[in-house]
Amino acid sequence: MADTWDGIREEWDAAVQLVNGSRSRSNEQLGATRAGLGLSQYPIALTGEPGAGKSVLFDALSGHTGVGDAESRRSPDREEGHRTFLLGSTKLRVSAMVVPGQESLQRERAMNRILSENTSPKGLIHVVCWGHNKVWDRTGQRALERNVRAPDGSISADGTRDWHLEKELVDFEKICDRIIETGAATRGLRWVIVAVTKADLFWNRIEEARDYYVPGSDSAGHHHSAESGFCTMLRDLMDHNDRLRVAVVPMSSQLIRHSFSESLAPQLSQIDSVGAGRLRESFYRTLRRLT
C-alpha cells in the first residue's frame, strides 16, 4: 500500500510541476466533446460538502468554464447531466449526478439512488477544497462566525478553514462508510478520485494540502504519526476495498476569489488561467487512466 500512496503523491507533484512550469506538457488532446451515437454509458457521481465546488468542477470537466465571481452560484436540488468526456481513443457518455452536499431530502434520495444495495456508479469524484467552502446562506455564515470568533472578537481564515475541515471530514467518513457498507466496490465502483478543488487559492501551501489529503509513509513504510484524519479514512477505505483505485489530485475549476468572512479581505487566486488549465489537463489525464 505504501507504493500506492507514493504513486498518488507523485501524480500530485507532477500536476503541481506542470503548473509551475518545471515539467513539460504532453501534446495529447484532452477534454470534453459533444456526445455521439452508440456510446456506452459510464455513470459517475460527484459528492462533497456544500460550497466545495462540485457543480463548477462538473462544468469544468465538460468544457463549460468561466472566470469571475458571477459564475459562482448555489446549485439546485440535484443535478444530473449527461456529458461526454473524450478520454484517449474511447468516447464515453458520462452520466454524472451531482449529489447535494446539505443534509436534506434531496441528498438522501440522491445517495439512495447512486449508492445502495443495488446500485453503484462506476466512478466517484469526492470534491474537497481544504476548508475553502462557500457558505451560501446568511444564517449558516452567522453560525459559523459566531463559533470561530476568538475571545477578542476577531475571525481568522485558519479558524474558518478548521470549521469547514471538520465538516468535510465527517462528510468523507459517511461516504466511505456507505461505500463499505453497500459493497459498492464489489458491484461496480472502480475508482474514487479525491478532487482537491480551488487549489489556486492556496497554491503557496499546496504541499501542506497534499500532506493533508494524501497518506504518506517514511522510508521504512510506516505511517506518519501526525497524519490527518482524512488520510486515516482514505487508508481505511483502501484497506476495505483492495480492488478500488484511488487518486488524489489538485484542481482548479474556475478562478474565483474566496471570502471567508466579510470582516476579512477576500483570498485571490495565486495561479493564472494557464495554470488552471494545466490542472484541468492533469485531472483529465487521471480520469482517462482510471477509466
Binding site: 444564517t139 449558516g140 471538520e166 465527517v170
Partner: peptide, 17 residues
C-alpha cells in the same frame, strides 16, 4: 424555516463532536 434549518446544518457536526 430555511434560516433555522440552515443554521442547524451548519453547526450539527461541531455540536455533536
Amino acid at each position: 424555516l430555511e434560516r433555522t434549518v440552515g443554521m442547524l446544518r451548519e453547526v450539527f457536526v461541531h455540536v455533536s463532536r
